[in-house]
């Protein structure tokens, strides 16, 4: 990778990776939120013209499963890639400033990202068999868990970036 730094500044390189990581996370968050809403408050019948919230949860949820898996893996890889830079240039100043809650939240973020990764095969299987009523409860709670984890991971990433991220 060192040859890249002949053409691009060190900060720019890591900033590009961070932005890609963030954009992938936004796409993942959107997909999982749609899916979680569709299982938590499913649309039962069309009564009159559908409003924004109804349309938001009336998505064809099974079609999101493969995309969610690909996005989680891609976001995870980019996150793991920039993590080594975070460990030196972000976490050490966070520790020096005594932002222990921020640092602890980031540790939860890394735990949830790995645990979520492990859930992807069963999540995919449950959605590929979305017609099977026996899987309804597991499908619902695995999806809600992943969506909740994704929201937590995303918001902690945002807070850490605010503490010491882009351009610092």
């Amino acid at each position: 990778m060192d040859f890249l730094f002949d053409y691009i500044a060190h900060n720019t390189y890591w900033t590009i990776l961070l932005i890609i990581h963030g954009l992938l996370a936004v796409a993942l968050l959107g997909a999982l939120t749609h899916q979680a809403m569709s299982v938590l408050v499913p649309v039962r019948q069309a009564a009159g013209s559908a409003g924004f919230v109804t349309r938001f949860r009336a998505v064809p949820a099974p079609g999101y499963a493969a995309a969610v898996c690909v996005l989680w893996i891609a976001t995870f890889i980019f996150g793991a890639w920039i993590y080594s830079e975070y460990r030196i240039y972000v976490r050490i100043p966070i520790e020096q400033a005594g932002f222990w809650k921020t640092q602890g939240s980031f540790e939860m973020k890394e735990h949830l990202a790995t645990i979520g990764l492990g859930l992807l095969p069963i999540y995919w299987y449950l959605w590929k068999n979305s017609g099977n009523a026996d899987y309804q409860s597991a499908r619902k709670w695995v999806t809600v868990y992943l969506a909740g984890a994704c929201w937590f991971i995303f918001l902690v990433g945002k807070v850490v970036n605010n503490v010491r991220g882009f351009g610092s």
Partner: peptide, 25 residues
């Protein structure tokens, strides 16, 4: 993908892999 989605063995693998990752981690 279709054959994996209908495979009982894949389901067993995915279930055990899912909760084991969480516990082992």
């Amino acid at each position: 993908a279709k054959s994996l989605a209908s495979s009982g063995k894949f389901k067993t693998f995915a279930v055990v892999f899912g909760f084991s990752t969480a516990a082992l981690y």
